[in-house]
Design a protein around this nucleic acid. Structure first.
Lengths: 148, 148
DNA sequence: TGTGAAATGAGATTCATTCTCAATAAGGAT
DNA sequence: ATCCTTATTGAGAATGAATCTCATTTCACA
């Protein structure tokens, strides 16, 4: 069994909840991904493998994964809530281009250390950090320049 | 005329758009606020003063204010998009308690400088910074301790 | 194997946001 | 001032992500 399964199972047990097959399928699909995803994409992916999991269960499981510390809400894309797994991944910042919509990531360890210190100082138990930087990427700036 | 009106009018003129009465009412109401707000709250506030502005116009104007750099999207509250004005306000981080839902703010100037330097280094034209820290505030931690 | 609680699927529901479209207003040109 | 073109608006319909309902199924444990 992979470690994220252990973590989720322990989390569920602690709350008197069960590690069912639908939850396992959702968890494994999430950790098979290496990109941000939303509930609908996840539902589609799971359906390629199995027709066993309903949309409702996908929506119900995602908040559990967040609470377990395995995934976190990410940059909102279009009108959908998006997620990304964070277990085993260093915290990173998201740079969102408002022209082409691209999202790219950069390391954030230095900022994380500062923020964790601030959290300790004010006795805030920090579990999620979301840093999003919006603007125009260099590619889109170049396009704008060319067309002038 | 207040400065935010000048900024918005210039922004609109630049795009061949008009500084109409509904847009002026929305702008002034936004800058009369000192808290985060969502479209519905804004619509209600404007209606206390005037029945002139429709919900559709509120929703249509908010993205213009974002684009003009006068407001920015803030922490999403419940299921609604929220905003806050940023013109004349230093950038700040949001600390969201996931138990009581409180949002409190702290200064972020030091982090902003680091991020602006990073943006320059990768030639990213930075316009918005959104830093949200989620966890449990000290009050809620104390409550949890008491009840054990 | 029986029992009670938790979980699920299917579809209905909710509700924030966006869209449609006919009517109106603005602002430059004459 | 009066056209004329284009932007804007309001009202309500439409959209669509997310949540809820509830009858049925599954699970864990005795």
């Amino acid at each position: 069994m992979q470690e994220h399964e252990n973590i989720f199972e322990a989390f569920l047990a602690e709350k008197g909840l069960k590690f069912t097959l639908p939850r396992k399928l959702i968890l494994d699909t999430v950790f098979g991904l290496h990109e941000h995803f939303d509930a609908e994409q996840l539902y589609d992916l799971i359906h390629r493998v199995s027709k066993e999991v309903s949309r409702a269960t996908v929506y119900r499981t995602l908040p559990l994964l967040v609470e377990a510390g395995l995934i976190q809400r990410s940059v909102r894309s279009e009108s959908r809530d998006t997620f990304e797994h964070i277990w085993g991944h260093p915290r990173h910042a998201h740079w969102v281009c408002k022209v082409c919509g691209s999202v790219h990531e950069t390391d954030m360890q230095d900022a994380v250390r500062i923020l964790q210190a601030k959290a300790r100082a004010q006795n805030f138990s920090l579990t999620e950090i979301n840093l999003t930087l919006t603007g125009i990427c260099w590619k889109c700036q170049n396009h704008a320049t060319e067309s002038q």
